[in-house]
Design a protein around this nucleic acid. Structure first.
Lengths: 153, 153
DNA sequence: CAGTATTGCGCAATAT
DNA sequence: TATATTGCGCAATACT
């Protein structure tokens, strides 16, 4: 008794089938492939939060304009638009995520490239420095170069 | 037939919802802003894809076992669990996205660091090479040093 | 067959 | 007012 009984709706006409995976419509304006099984979520009442407020008791008058006339054509239209917007937004979100991931990969590669370069440069530098030191020694050590390339070290 | 306007379902008794799913609180659902409105989506018919098996035509008999007894306690329980799983999954997803983004930032920094280092090393190398060349020139220019002891080589 | 994880989807509140 | 985002629940399905 606590749980709202449900409408059974005999869904006899399912037509069948269809597509199961509806994705990639992207640009289809209005018109969901009727196939996808008419998923429909219905009730959703707004919470109306009665008590509270400064104590304003609002009688059942139609003061507000909670556009929620389930049956309204207007409503249905807004819903549809929002649904499209939602899809779009989510698609973007996912795309962005993928792009970011890709960026990570690219940056990683770039990094490796740079590290390799650093390694190379370091090596070159090292060699050059050694050569330089050797020369310096030669110059300082011997004003008279002996017979070898080696001084006395 | 443009749209599945068949969604008539007479939203017959929407009952007042009131407590809405009370038992729901499993782990920590309390974060819902009290006002968030008890959202409830209901109907959702299953597409039921008859064709199957070896092409058997199954009459509308109750052969299936689509565990979907809205009123069932079992059902409610499964739903609740799935909802938790969904939340968890989505949380992870978001976290992952953020981590990836962060990684991009870190890699970018690292990149700059490496590039700077490369620049530095290049500079050093350049200087050293110049010095080297200078020396080479000196040596080449005066093949005859002061004492001229340099004979051959 | 059962349980969790993912994913697409629609609703509604809210942000822009 | 319209679109964009976001949290949420449902159900189908992938995965264990």
């Amino acid at each position: 008794m606590s749980r709202p009984s449900q409408a059974k709706l005999t869904t006899a006409d399912h037509n069948g089938v269809s597509v199961i995976q509806s994705q990639a419509h992207a640009t289809s304006p209005s018109s969901l492939p009727a196939g996808v099984a008419g998923l429909q979520q219905v009730p959703q009442l707004v919470p109306a939060n009665p008590s509270a407020g400064g104590g304003k008791a609002l009688p059942p008058s139609k003061m507000k304009k909670p556009h929620a006339d389930k049956d309204s054509e207007e409503y249905r239209q807004r819903r549809e638009r929002n649904n499209l917007a939602v899809k779009k937004s989510r698609m973007r979100s996912k795309q962005k995520a993928m792009d970011t991931q890709q960026r990570v990969n690219e940056l990683k590669e770039e990094n490796e490239r740079l590290e390799a370069k650093i390694k190379l440069l370091s090596k070159e530098l090292s060699v050059l420095k050694d050569l330089f030191l050797e020369h310096a020694h030669n110059l300082a050590d011997n004003v008279q170069p002996p017979t070898g390339t080696e001084g006395s070290k």
